[in-house]
């Protein structure tokens, strides 16, 4: 009669052993087989263009959070279709954004914008965004410095 008594190895120990082996396989896979993807991803926040109608002075402020897996450098900003390469004179803040961190920037603009309008902000980074994500565009309101 094929009637096992059980108790050769307890069920709980069997589970622990099985989960340990699985964990080891996963670690081995992540260390030796795959490399983290180099993917640029970010979120733009608190983006506003400030203009002074009297002096004609204008600047943009915004914060970038790096939500990707690599550090990146902001090479340029694009406002509607106008490209402004960074760094420019009078710029405040850093263009290097580390993984998971935020960077705040204030960039003086070459000409003024109409208050009350919205301008589309787009960043050009190094390394660049993937093809699929080309459309991280931040609508930026234009306000008067009060």
């Amino acid at each position: 009669m094929n009637s096992k008594g059980g108790g050769t190895i307890s069920i709980t120990m069997g589970i622990v052993l099985c989960l340990l082996i699985c964990t080891m396989i996963i670690f081995a896979y992540s260390f030796f087989i795959v490399k983290p993807a180099e993917r640029v991803d970010y979120t733009v926040m608190q983006n506003t263009i400030y203009v002074n109608p009297n002096s004609g002075e204008a600047y943009i402020t915004f914060t970038v959070q790096n939500t990707g897996t690599v550090d990146f450098v902001i090479k340029a900003i694009v406002l509607d279709k106008e490209r402004i390469d960074l760094p420019v004179e009078g710029m405040l803040g850093t263009t290097i954004v580390k993984v998971g961190q935020r960077a705040a920037l204030r960039v003086p603009l070459p000409h003024t914008y109409e208050p009350g309008t919205v301008v589309n902000l787009f960043l050009i980074t190094d390394p660049p965004l993937l093809e699929a994500q080309k459309f991280i565009v931040a609508p930026t309101p234009v306000e008067v410095i009060g």
Binding site: M1, N2, S3, K4, G5, G6
Partner: peptide, 10 residues
Amino acid sequence: NVFLGREIVS
């Protein structure tokens, strides 16, 4: 119930 703990398995 009768075979509980001593089931016959193939």
